[in-house]
Design a protein around this nucleic acid. Structure first.
Lengths: 165, 165
DNA sequence: GGCAAGAAGATTGCCCACAATTCAGTAGTA
DNA sequence: TACTACTGAATTGTGGGCAATCTTCTTGCC
């Protein structure tokens, strides 16, 4: 260090330092997300599902059959994530993947009997999660609104400042 | 399917179905988190840091030197995540890792000159993120409070129902 | 028909997260 | 002093997430 910049702890940790960790909303967000992950891990244990796999099953229980593309849109996951994930779930006997006859590019995903049956086991999951979260329905949906607004704003900012040709 | 259970889309997607995707707070949370990730990726591009690496640098800029254990506590990352991450950052010339003389089990992490210098480049990051989030300071800290309360509640529920010996 | 453009999945490569194990070092104690 | 218990890091193995690339198939247009 030959210049005059101060790199002492006192200087770096000053009260108005915008780089302070505890000012980072994103950190709190990830923390809450991680805490959810811990709870889901425990609650989903006897279904054998991971949290992302649980999300896939929810979409399949809702729609009975879906092309990979649609799952990708619903869960905001790209094929690089979804392909191996679905492959593991197929191997576990939860779903089948078959090329669409109408459009050979498309792969249709359907739950197996075992996959559908799992719905009974998963029925209680949302209630358990809700209890662990300890939020009133009003608080929960207020938080959801805030998060959706936030995500929308962040996405928009990317569209605005970003998409280079 | 030999029993009488209905697995039709209509049955599964009913309006009061607790398994509906859009009722899952956690999904919105992860979405917001992912949106943050996208923005951070772009904003951090010319620092060469990933978001987790940025968090590590923040803690180092604040404290100048830290044992791995302390970083682990501050960022809630375990050694399985932190060890390779710090190794990559050391390889990138951002920090050094040296065994503590006082306690040979402990490894002390310090920023290099290059690592400290990066602080200048990162100075503008929080403001850019804040702008992209589009929240007033009041909204932001309200959201932080809500998220911390949520995370605390989730963590507590784990302590209560979980910790098998 | 034939060709260019685009769409859907899969693959590869890198990084992060977590569980479980291992190893070296420290501390407490008979 | 030896024996044990514990602690801090590192490693191994699995699963997610994303960027970039590739293959195959469809579509549109000449």
């Amino acid at each position: 260090m030959s210049d005059g910049s101060r790199t002492t702890p006192a200087g770096a940790g000053a009260e108005d330092d915008p780089l302070r960790l505890d000012l980072h909303l994103c950190f709190d967000l990830q923390n809450a997300s991680r805490a959810f992950g811990d709870v889901y891990r425990r609650v989903l244990r006897d279904t054998g599902l991971t949290y992302p796999q649980y999300l896939v099953m929810i979409t399949l229980w809702e729609h009975e059959e879906l092309p990979v593309k649609r799952i990708s849109q619903l869960l905001r996951l790209d094929s690089g994530t979804l392909s191996p994930l679905l492959k593991r779930m197929e191997l576990a006997g939860l779903l089948t993947r078959t090329r669409s006859a109408a459009d050979e590019r498309s792969v249709i995903v359907r739950p197996t009997a075992a996959g559908s049956a799992l719905r009974e086991k998963a029925k209680g999951v949302p209630a358990q999660i809700h209890a662990a979260a300890g939020l009133s329905p009003q608080e929960a949906s207020a938080l959801q609104r805030a998060l959706r607004k936030l995500a929308a704003s962040l996405d928009t900012s990317l569209d605005a400042s970003g998409p280079r040709p």
